[in-house]
Computed example of a mutant assay.
Amino acid sequence: MAYKSTILITGGTSGLGYYAALDIARSCPSSQVIISSRSDKEKAAAFINKTLGQSNVIFAPLDLGNLANVRKYARDFAAAGHPPIRALLLNAALQFPGEVETTADGIEATFGITHVGHALLFHLLVPHLADHARVVITSSGTHDPSKFTGIFALPVPIYTSAEELAHPKPAFSATHSGRQRYGTSKLCNVLWMYALERHLAERAPERHITVTAMDPGLMPGTGLGREAGAAARFVWHSSGAALARLAVGDDAGVRGVTGKYFEGRTEIPSSTDSYNVEKQEDLWRWTVGFVSGGDEEAKRRFQEFR
């Protein structure tokens, strides 16, 4: 079958990403749906196809903690001749609750996988994005300390600078837990969403690419949930459907909407810190500089979205 468009979702083999991919594949049978993570041990792509009686879902391995692998992934995508991307869902994330761990590129792993790998993937896939394409970023309510107070309080995300998050000094690492690093990485998702939306509007308005971020709420673990109870399956299905709506929904609440933050299906304000333009631009400048690898032509191309 000749597909009309591509929909790509990272972290699409389990949990929230799996249920979003299932919903998207069902509602968009004429689109090629690519689910990506480091592995597909549970054969999620095949299971979705079997469940739906379709064949439009494929798996493509991707290691967001290795920028060389992200570059290879983008080259392989281009070589495969897939149709233009109508929706890019940057959904994958990992949390490292113990001591600081680093990626293959020597940056703190939570920040590296949740933000940096996704940012490079976006910039490399820009030439393959259709006009009016949607970029959807899975963030988390953990980025907003006002949502968790009292006995439910979580470590407050602290954004100092992108460089500090990428290469934390020992003193910084000693006072920032893995849970705090995770919440801060989710704050980075929202900061980058606002920065990306602004730069797209300034430099590539004719492409009409939209960018949104979403908090899916508390997720009941990972996996496909084939054996999970009814309550867990309901949460997965509901949150997956909300993520799918941002990517491919056609109602007025999402069509053409950009630079907005959602909690499930509802547009809400993000955290106070996430609106700090200085922090947004610090993250933007550092990210473009780092993922371009010091190549001035690549840096220019990334900033011009071509």
Rank of each mutant, 00 (worst) to 15 (best):
K186C: 04
G225I: 08
I85D: 00
Q32C: 12
V33P: 01
I58W: 00
V156N: 10
A174R: 13
T51P: 00
E281D: 11
Y18W: 09
L129Y: 07
Q303M: 15
R38S: 00
L191H: 05
A109P: 05
K299E: 15
A174E: 15
S146M: 05
A60N: 09
R226L: 15
F96E: 13
H82C: 02
I7H: 01
R179T: 06
N49H: 01
G253S: 13
A204K: 10
A232K: 14
S30E: 14
A171K: 12
S161A: 10
R300Y: 08
H132N: 12
Q280A: 09
S140L: 13
G259C: 06
E267T: 05
Y3N: 02
L67S: 03
L129K: 05
A46E: 15
A298V: 15
W192I: 04
L200T: 03
P84K: 07
G223L: 08
S36M: 04
A87F: 02
Y73L: 08
L243W: 00
L196K: 13
D131R: 07
E296Y: 06
A230C: 01
K279G: 03
K186D: 04
T272H: 12
W284L: 07
R134S: 06
I34F: 01
L16F: 08
L283Q: 05
G225K: 09
I7V: 15
R255V: 07
